[in-house]
Amino acid sequence: MELKLFYRTQRELAADLNKLIDFYWEEKVNEPELIKGIKDLYENNNEKLLKGNQFTKIVQQHCGKRRLTVVEKILEIK
Rank of each mutant, 00 (worst) to 15 (best):
M1I: 13
M1F: 09
E2H: 11
E2W: 07
L3I: 14
L3M: 11
L3D: 06
L3S: 08
L3H: 03
L3N: 08
L5Y: 09
L5E: 13
L5I: 10
F6T: 12
F6S: 08
Y7M: 11
R8F: 05
R8S: 08
R8P: 00
T9M: 00
T9Y: 00
T9I: 03
Q10E: 15
Q10A: 11
Q10T: 06
R11K: 13
R11S: 14
E12N: 12
E12K: 07
L13I: 12
A14C: 11
A14P: 13
A14L: 08
A14R: 01
A15R: 04
A15E: 13
A15V: 08
D16N: 05
D16R: 04
D16S: 07
L17W: 11
K19P: 07
K19L: 15
L20Q: 03
I21Y: 02
I21K: 01
I21C: 09
D22T: 08
D22A: 05
Y24N: 09
Y24G: 08
Y24T: 07
Y24D: 11
W25G: 02
W25L: 12
W25I: 04
W25A: 04
E26L: 08
E26A: 08
E26W: 01
E26Y: 02
E27N: 06
K28L: 09
V29G: 03
N30D: 15
E31P: 01
E31L: 07
E31I: 02
E31R: 03
P32N: 11
P32V: 10
P32Y: 06
L34T: 05
I35H: 08
I35A: 10
K36G: 01
K36E: 12
K36V: 10
G37C: 15
G37P: 14
K39V: 01
K39A: 00
K39G: 01
K39M: 05
D40P: 00
L41H: 00
Y42I: 10
Y42H: 14
Y42Q: 09
E43A: 07
E43K: 08
N44R: 04
N44V: 01
N45I: 03
N45C: 09
N45P: 06
N46K: 07
N46W: 03
N46I: 02
K48F: 15
L49R: 06
L50M: 12
L50S: 05
L50K: 05
G52L: 15
G52Q: 13
G52V: 15
Q54A: 10
Q54K: 11
F55M: 04
F55T: 03
T56V: 14
T56C: 13
T56I: 12
T56S: 13
K57P: 14
I58F: 01
I58K: 04
I58R: 03
V59S: 07
V59F: 06
Q60V: 10
Q61G: 01
Q61W: 00
H62C: 13
C63A: 14
C63E: 07
G64Y: 14
G64I: 15
G64S: 13
K65S: 15
R66V: 14
R67Y: 02
R67C: 06
R67E: 05
L68T: 09
V70F: 04
V71W: 08
E72F: 08
E72M: 15
K73E: 14
K73A: 09
K73R: 14
I74V: 13
I74G: 09
L75V: 07
L75Y: 05
L75G: 06
E76P: 02
E76F: 00
I77Y: 03
I77T: 01
K78S: 11
